[in-house]
Amino acid sequence: MAESTTMSASGTGSVEPAPAKSFSQRSWRSKLRRVPLSGWIGLVLVGVPAVVAIFAPLLMPHSPTEIDPTRALLPPIGMEGYQPGHLLGTDNLGRDLLSRLIEGARISLLIGVLSVVLAGSIGLTVGLAAGYYSKWIDALLMRFVDALLAIPSILLILVILGVLDPGMWTLIFVLGITNWVIYARQIRAEVLELRERQFIRAAQNFGVSGPTILLRHLTPNVMPSFIVLSTLSVATVIVTESGLSFLGLGVQPPDISWGLMLTTGRDYLATAWWISTLPGLAITFTVLGILLLGDWLRDALDPRLAVGR
């Protein structure tokens, strides 16, 4: 028997704990107190663009689409040729970069979050159903998943985008329905393992219905990997979006996304590096923030890690 683990688990029970506060109060306070540094960094890295995206119209110093050729390719603050009023400089058409970054945050984050919500909810549902219900439901769903996985997702995206008009909503749809298969596979595998645990059998024995078992017992237990998958895929989706925008299949002007900005700036890398570097940095930091946040969230949702030790 693993002595160290049984020992640390055994002690607390004998000690009379303080009269309990309501469950939610206690857990939130203790969870907040335990946010590690990396969690805070993640919170800030994600929080800043999120707040900026929400209050975008209030924060923009200029209209992000206002063209002024006389003010083209102005450098950001601290460089020679900086002009007050354009804190981060301007692009090749004289549009204010700060305003464009702010407006781009809206669309980029919206695409990232919504497509992951779409993919996640399809994937979670399919994974839970396939893992928990009868063999032939499982076989049916999983063969479909396999078929989808067999088609390169970029090909699928290109085909769908060929049929539908490109744009933000199309992009969300496309990225959502091509990404759910990874969730389905992962969640199903975990459910298959969890299903054999005795607490599931115990619940079945009490007559708890299938959907309730899925919701109350299985879903919380697959959450850790669901969160990890989700944060990873918000990150990849933001990157894919910039790739598609680069190919001209993503967000269409006059809409703005960070990916699109990256693309427009590439011709000026040698002369005006800031046009694509700044959105690039925005993507990098946001993705990093999401990953850190997800890491912390996974731990925070685990009662074994949240209390004590």
Binding site: T6, S10, G13, E16, P17, P19, A20, R26, G308
Partner: peptide, 15 residues
């Protein structure tokens, strides 16, 4: 078991 056990999670108990 003490009533204070209500709010605790399984891992906080011995076998």
């Amino acid at each position: 078991l003490p009533r204070s056990a209500r709010q605790k999670y399984p891992h906080e108990f011995s076998g």
